[in-house]
Design a protein around this nucleic acid. Structure first.
Lengths: 302, 302
DNA sequence: TCAATAGTGTCTATTAGACAGTATACC
DNA sequence: GGTATACTGTCTAATAGACACTATTGA
């Protein structure tokens, strides 16, 4: 596609000569990392033999064994070496944490503030991955490196609107809570949307962060917003499901991500084209059995 | 937020001691750049005194004066220095190209393939910016550095669907054409969507690129897709409009981005809440005058 | 006068929300 | 039998597409 040019530049060099003389070390460079947001959905304990187990959104975090933020919890990830593509680096991290292939993954955002990492300048490219927890061999706590699943909740504590001459400003305080049997981590993020004239700007800022390393609380908050958005118009939810599932389970997954209850009738209509009936049913559930469905791989968004 | 920890790590160092001994030079690092997709909408010549001028989507490109890809056209951008945030670097580039402040800008995607740049490993974070062309002092070709606006078109040449055992694959060939009075650049991008089982993957690959440097054709194609998506559910289009505009002009902007015609009645209903009437009208148009509108900064998406 | 755009009214199809009501295992 | 979930039917409100129709200028 790009055949070496034989044109000479202002220094009289051809492309080949230029590339040979190019010194890659003259400018100081930032470090680049990938940060993985590996989500799954798990069943909670059921209180009553009849009740369905509640589902919860889970995120995988790693306990930092070294400085900085030693002892705190961070997103899995690592530095991107010069010979490896960003996506390969992300896939490698994902594989090393989950030990499974063919996992859904998408780029979330690249975080490039100065001072994000006290060691050196680090730019982090974050990726969301969605895993069916029944496919996970490694369960929470099995990992030697102290990887653990945390129950994630996203709560709007406060919403404040201020009108301006030529627009308005809305500020939300969002509390992120990460919980498991042993620990509870919390963070508060301030999200500010400023509309002045025709220009809209959104900023996110960490107000408090307890037990969560770096600026990872902000990344987690943003990831949840992305999931909430995308689950409405894509099929990403199916990446969190086992091969066979009931429509109620699917609905629970939607509810746990959206953070609100849905009406069964409307939900079933909405996802009808995305699923295929099987002739299998659940049993021993303490109530009416439920038909099992599969994802319909022929489905396409209209 | 992160008070230096006095806990000692496995080497017996406190956080402060660790940071002092941290050697930032031990790993080779990729370079990071920002690439700016600066879009605007301009009027084309009108053929007939009665007809409204047609609008076209324009993209700002820079002619490369040095290797590699010398003589070809590239997205404006540059290396990110270690002391500057990604967003600041993008804003700085944007300001240096357009000479205006308060421009709409959003992160598009970070491109991290190995071999994107023949000089060295380069990771590029791309940003979309939308400019009202009436606010631009610097018009096409005024710039000493050979910056020029190109008319952008996005054409689907071919769509091919192949069904598989557990899913399907769709391949599109998209032709991107960048045109101005002097030059015409073209590129063909192959977009492949693979659905196998529950997993969906989309890849983009440059099949041909004439006159467009690096992998920038792919970035341009992706940016247009993003614009098409976002114009449907956000107010980004207003960043391309002058302060006062007619609803027909606004509709033209939507049409030029979406690449299809819209029905006036439905369009007006859809954007009704986003605009405010003024009591001004166009005149000398050779036909019925049109009411001028402003963006309604109090509008919020439902 | 008439070409071209500006702007409205209304029918229809589709979709989401609400909620009542029926169905069914299994402890 | 009774509890909890499974599943359906239908009314309503909101929205998008289609298209006919009216309004208004200035060359």
């Amino acid at each position: 596609m790009n055949e070496p040019s034989i044109i000479r530049d202002k220094n009289g060099l051809t492309e080949q000569e230029y590339l040979q003389s190019y010194d890659v070390t003259i400018y100081e460079r930032p470090s680049v990392t990938v940060d993985m947001l590996i989500f799954t959905v798990m069943n909670q304990e059921q209180e009553n033999y009849r009740k369905l187990p509640e589902k919860s959104l889970q995120l995988l975090l790693i306990k930092r064994g070294e400085h900085p933020y030693m002892g705190q919890w961070a997103l899995p990830g690592g530095f991107v070496p010069v010979h490896e593509s960003l996506e390969d680096a992300a896939r490698r991290e994902l594989k090393s944490e989950t030990n499974i292939d063919h996992i859904y993954m998408e780029q979330l955002f690249t975080w490039g503030d100065v001072g994000r990492d006290p060691r050196t300048r680090v730019i982090s490219c974050s990726y969301i991955a969605l895993v069916d927890h029944t496919a996970l061999q490694v369960q929470a706590g099995d990992d030697a490196a102290d990887a653990r699943w945390f129950d994630v909740t996203h709560q709007v504590l406060e919403e404040k609107r201020t009108n301006r001459d030529e627009g308005y400003e809305i500020e939300w305080l969002v509390k992120i809570t990460l919980r498991n049997e042993l620990e509870e981590l919390t963070a508060t993020i301030k999200i500010k949307e400023t509309v002045s004239g025709r220009l809209t700007e959104v900023t996110r800022e960490i107000v408090a962060s307890e037990g969560i390393a770096f600026d990872h609380a902000k990344i987690i908050e943003y990831a949840i917003e992305r999931l909430r958005n995308k689950i409405e118009y894509t099929d990403i939810a199916f990446n969190l499901m086992p091969p066979l599932f009931t429509l109620s389970e699917l609905q629970q997954v939607y509810e746990v991500i959206l953070g609100k209850e849905l009406l069964a009738a409307a939900f079933r209509r909405k996802i009808a084209d995305m699923v295929m009936e099987t002739n299998q049913f659940t049993k021993d559930a303490g109530h009416r059995p439920s038909k099992l469905y599969r994802f319909n791989p022929m489905w396409r968004r209209k």
